[in-house]
Every structure is written in structure tokens, then in C-alpha cells.
């Protein structure tokens, strides 16, 4: 009996840790949808959801229950297996990437050496869910949405990859924990300042990668109804929804880790530093992530949808050249030991 416990102890602990990450993440996704509706509501001088529970707090629970109860309709002539597996394919990478994200200096599920590369590889797989959904549905609208989305994601991945290359040059490591530790010092040591153009490009690309407004031509309600998930209903649709919001949270957390010093306190190196030593690092990470998530919602409430050729132009002709130029400049700065970031 003891031997058996020794054998399964490690896997059991890993599963428990995974649950400890995924369960709050799912809750965060639910309440992100609530926050989105509330924030955009207030921005548009409405109240937003306020009927279910006090001030509408139970709205996301009610939505989830409704989606669970609904029938999953599989269109005739669709590829049944691929149709049902597509939502899972889009959710799985969004969840698997969390394995290597460090929450504090010591709190990380798998502290692997090339964690940034791992995340880049996994986020690049998310596009399969969209493409397969569009194709398996066997509908023109879904297919057009999938094509648009795939072209857009592949285009912006390049700019995003280059921005990450800049981060790993500055951090001197592919490991996210070490990248955060390389930003120690003060608010001005964080990489947002020396890598400012890459920071902006990373954030905009991450909006495009998640197919969020103003880059949501994949859904394009006005022309192609709802894009790749037009025929999805019930839980299959909900999984797509979960994947989109889980990806938002993932990319926002990554931005916080790579450009805003992750769990480091923003008051580091100032005279108020000692007042905030009791605040756990996770709090700062969550606060920075929330900031980026708020930006996502703010963008959605502010900008009209991009035209498709403008999206392609921005990705290929503006972002990629800027990132390449900045990488060359950064390389020169590293060689010249320009402090306090590159020495």
C-alpha cells in the first residue's frame, strides 16, 4: 500500500496543482465576461447585466448553466468528428501554456528551461481550432471566417515572435522566471521602457491573435454572421468562448511578466518600498494582468472594426519592419552595455 502511494504521489500532486491553476482560471474567464459586459456597458452609458443575483454578479453562472443545458447541434454534411474536436483543439493550448507561467519566484508548475519558446509554440497551435471548425462546419460563412482568422493569426504571430525575441535578448534567457528576475530594480528597470515599441506591438498583436475587436474580422457579424463558430451551439460554442477568454488572460499575463516585471512590486527602489513588502507577489501580477485585460475591453468599446487590407498592412508593413529595426538597435545596445537594462 505504501509502495503504491509512493508510485502515484507525484502524478497526484501534479494533477492537484493543475486543478489549482485551471479552476481559478475558469472562474476568472467567467467573471471576465461579466466584467466585459459591465465595463463596456458603463462606457456606453448603460448599466449592463443587473438582473441575476445582486448587481448581476451571478450572470456568468447563469450563462454557463444555460449553455450547458442547450442542445449541441451538428449540421448535416459536416465532418462530425472534426466539428466536435475543434473547440477542444482551441481550448487545450490556451490551458496547457499555463503550465510554465511563473506566478511568483517559486510558484510555477513546470520551471522548464525554454518556457518562452514553449508558450510561443503552444499559442501558435490555437489556430487549428479555428481552421478546423471553419472547414468541418461545411458552410461558406464559417469557412470564410476561418480563412480570415488563420491568415490574420499567422501574420501577427511573426510580429509577436519578434517582440518576444527582443524580450529574450534583454532578459538573457528563454526562461520566464529569469526574464522577470532580470527586470529587478525599479519601475524603470522593467522592460516596457527599453523595449517600448516591442511592448506596444506585442500588445496589439495579442489583440489580433485572440481575434478580439478591432481585429475581429473572423467573426465579422455584418458580413459573415459569426465566422467560424456560426453553426456551434450549446457547450461546443461555450468551449470556443472559454478558449478566447482564456487566451486573453494568458496573453495579458505574459505581457505583465515580460514587460511589467511580473510579480515585482512597482514601488521597488523607491522610499515607499517598505510599506508594501507585505503584499504578496501574486497580487502585483494579477493587478498588472487586470490592467491589460481592461485595455482589451477598452479597445473593444472604443474602436470600429479594421478593414481586412488594413489589418494585413499593419501586420506586415508596419509591425514587422519596426520590430526588426528595434532588434538591431537592441543588439547594439547590448553590445554597448547601455544601462541600466543591458549591462
Amino acid at each position: 500500500m505504501v509502495e503504491f502511494w509512493e508510485l502515484i504521489r507525484e502524478p497526484v500532486f501534479i494533477v492537484l496543482k493543475i486543478v489549482a491553476i485551471v479552476a481559478p482560471l475558469m472562474l476568472a474567464v467567467a467573471y471576465l465576461t461579466y466584467a466585459e459586459r459591465k465595463i463596456i456597458g458603463y462606457m456606453q452609458v448603460r448599466i449592463g447585466p443587473n438582473r441575476v443575483g445582486p448587481r448581476g454578479w451571478l450572470q456568468p453562472i447563469a450563462d454557463a448553466l444555460k449553455l450547458l443545458m442547450k442542445e449541441i447541434i451538428v449540421p448535416g454534411n459536416s465532418d462530425r468528428f472534426l466539428f466536435l474536436i475543434a473547440p477542444m483543439l482551441s481550448l487545450a493550448p490556451a490551458l496547457a501554456a499555463w503550465a510554465v507561467l511563473p506566478f511568483t519566484d517559486t510558484l510555477v508548475l513546470a520551471d522548464i528551461d525554454a518556457s518562452l519558446l514553449y508558450i510561443l509554440a503552444l499559442t501558435s497551435m490555437g489556430v487549428y481550432g479555428v481552421i478546423i471548425a471553419g472547414w468541418a462546419t461545411n458552410s461558406k460563412y464559417a469557412f470564410l471566417g476561418a480563412m480570415r482568422s488563420a491568415a490574420q493569426i499567422v501574420s501577427y504571430e511573426i510580429a509577436m515572435g519578434f517582440a518576444l525575441v527582443g524580450v529574450l535578448i534583454a532578459g538573457g534567457s528563454l526562461n520566464l522566471r529569469e526574464i522577470v528576475l532580470a527586470q529587478q530594480g525599479s519601475l524603470l528597470h522593467w522592460f516596457w521602457l527599453p523595449l517600448f515599441p516591442l511592448f506596444i506591438i506585442y500588445f496589439i498583436s495579442s489583440v489580433a491573435e485572440t481575434n478580439r475587436a478591432p481585429f475581429d474580422v473572423a467573426e465579422g457579424e455584418s458580413e459573415i454572421v459569426a465566422g467560424f463558430h456560426v453553426e456551434y451551439s450549446g457547450m461546443a460554442f461555450a468551449v470556443f468562448f472559454l478558449a478566447e477568454y482564456a487566451n486573453m488572460i494568458l496573453l495579458a499575463t505574459l505581457a505583465a511578466l515580460m514587460f511589467l516585471g511580473g510579480w515585482l512590486s512597482p514601488f521597488e527602489g523607491t522610499w515607499v518600498e517598505s510599506w508594501f513588502t507585505w503584499v504578496p507577489g501574486v497580487f502585483w501580477l494579477l493587478a498588472k494582468t487586470s490592467l491589460f485585460l481592461f485595455f482589451y475591453l477598452w479597445l473593444r468599446a472604443t474602436f470600429p472594426r479594421y478593414r481586412y487590407d488594413q489589418i494585413m498592412r499593419l501586420g506586415w508593413k508596419v509591425f514587422i519592419p519596426i520590430t526588426i529595426v528595434w532588434l538591431v538597435l537592441e543588439g547594439a545596445a547590448v553590445v554597448a552595455d547601455i544601462g541600466p537594462w543591458f549591462d
Binding site: 525554454a114 519558446l117 510561443l120 509554440a121 503552444l122 501558435s124 497551435m125 499567422v154 504571430e157
Partner: peptide, 11 residues
């Protein structure tokens, strides 16, 4: 391994 996924599977 990760580059294989990134380059071949992802792009």
C-alpha cells in the same frame, strides 16, 4: 522539439 512544433505545426 519545441521548434518543430512552432515552425512546422504552428506555421
Amino acid at each position: 522539439a519545441i521548434t518543430l512544433v512552432l515552425v512546422y505545426v504552428g506555421a
